[in-house]
């Protein structure tokens, strides 16, 4: 039946998009929690395509695999969040670049010195205007802080 293969194709594309978005997020973001959310998002993409295959073959195997994936994801979430809380207690930061010096014993340190600093143009503190008009504030500026 061609209709079934078209349906499977649609679900595979959606699952692949979610998986690739999770990959991009995992590589690009620096916040430990958001990186971990992105790993969960990749699992979601896989589960969409697994259920699609199960429907195509008319078997329950795909749904079974997704059920076990949910259980493993729950384990992963517990362990990873414990790890994140522990790392936060040690460093006071959720920034993954804080841990870039972690390595095996006896190996030379690889520290990426090109991690971007904050750009000056992002500090929009209110400036006094000579005309005595109330200055326009950037709404987000008061929320920004450079350290804990």
């Amino acid at each position: 039946m061609p209709e079934a293969s078209q349906q499977l194709f649609n679900y595979l594309i959606v699952g692949g998009l979610v998986f690739a978005l999770g990959t991009i997020g995992f590589i690009v973001r620096r916040n430990l929690i958001v990186m971990f959310l992105c790993a969960e998002m990749m699992l979601q993409g896989v589960s969409i395509s697994l259920v699609g295959w199960g429907r195509y073959h008319d078997r329950l195997g795909g749904q079974m695999l997704v059920l076990f994936m949910i259980a493993v994801a729950a384990c992963e979430a517990g362990v990873a969040l414990a790890l994140i809380v522990m790392l936060y207690q040690k460093s006071g930061k959720l920034d993954v670049t804080f841990w870039q010096g972690v390595r095996e014993e006896g190996r030379a340190a690889f520290v990426d010195r090109n991690v971007p600093r904050e750009l000056d143009r992002e500090d929009h503190w209110p400036r006094l205007t000579p005309a005595g008009i109330e200055p326009t504030l950037d709404e987000e500026a008061p929320l920004h802080r450079s350290r804990v």
Binding site: R30, V85, L94, D95, T97, H144
Partner: peptide
């Protein structure tokens, strides 16, 4: 872990 506001590493990517 993050009481309020945006951290530097949330506003910047690599």
């Amino acid at each position: 872990a993050q009481p309020e506001g945006h951290e530097t590493h949330d506003r910047l990517s690599w």
